[in-house]
């Protein structure tokens, strides 16, 4: 665990010294800020439910940029050799890298707390859905980052990592659309259960459902496992 924490620290430092990270965060905040302002003007409702949906879509677009570097960069520059010869296990590397990206994401989320604070000032929003909304955003982002990590651990090309991650996320995001045309059937249910959009929905309403939490945790666990295997496969070669 200590090794993983050291890697996490290293990763966090590299985030906060990289201009790309700041640009990504600024982009995220501009888009969310504008959408927050526009929906507040339009609906005149003291709720972050609309913002959560918008933020989630924005996240879908930018999170590949947050994770594409993680392993691919080490592969490209060859520093991966150093990592592999050092006395850390693959799992420690992956967990450390993942926690690093998660830390950066949480920092970004903290900056979005301005929106609920503004709402609390100008209106009387229901605090419960804000709390669950942020929990949902945290789990959703953690899921996105995990998918991005898998993509990054499979290639040394950052663009490929980003595009691959984006494709998978988009598919998982809208997978329920196939089934939403007709009535509720078995398969539309299965697809709905796989859809990150639908899993995120409850959180935005103010409801924490154990099914959604289990889903996101399973997704994260599975992706971390895949990343570890991908890294080990490199080593074996």
């Amino acid at each position: 665990m200590k090794n993983a924490l050291i890697i996490m620290q290293r990763e966090l430092r590299s985030y906060f010294t990289s201009t790309i990270a700041y640009t990504v965060a600024a982009f995220f905040l501009v888009v969310c800020g504008y959408l927050f302002f526009a929906t507040l003007k339009l609906t005149q409702e003291a709720t972050i439910r609309y913002l959560l949906h918008n933020a989630a879509v924005t996240l879908l677009l930018i999170s590949p940029a947050m994770t594409m570097r993680l392993i691919a960069e080490e592969r490209r520059t060859g520093t991966i050799e150093l990592l592999m010869t050092s006395p850390v296990t693959d799992a420690q590397v992956i967990i450390g890298k993942y926690l690093g990206s998660l830390g950066f994401y949480v920092a970004m989320l903290l900056l979005t707390l301005q929106y609920p604070l503004i709402l609390l000032r100008v209106g009387a929003p229901d605090k419960g859905p804000m709390l669950t909304g942020y929990l949902g955003l945290l789990l959703l982002g953690a899921g996105f980052l995990a998918i991005g990590l898998v993509a990054s651990s499979l290639t040394k090309n950052q663009i490929v990592a980003a595009v691959g991650a984006f494709a998978v996320m988009l598919l998982l995001w809208i997978v329920s659309w196939v089934g939403s045309g007709g009535a509720t059937t078995f398969w539309s249910e299965v697809l709905r259960n796989l859809s990150m959009l639908d899993r995120f929905e409850n959180f935005t309403k103010g409801v924490i459902d154990t099914r959604d939490v289990v889903f996101f945790l399973s997704l994260i666990g599975f992706c971390l496992f895949l990343s570890v295997r991908a890294l080990s496969a490199t080593k074996a070669r």
Binding site: G33, L111, Q114, V122
Partner: peptide
């Protein structure tokens, strides 16, 4: 519950400037 917010012109300007300009530009 009725969560209506009626923004005054100055409040509205303040929100726009903070959320869209000050904080993102600060990060940048």
């Amino acid at each position: 519950e009725n969560n209506q917010v009626f923004l005054g012109a100055s409040q509205s300007r303040f929100i726009l400037i903070t959320t869209v300009f000050i904080i993102p530009i600060g990060v940048l």
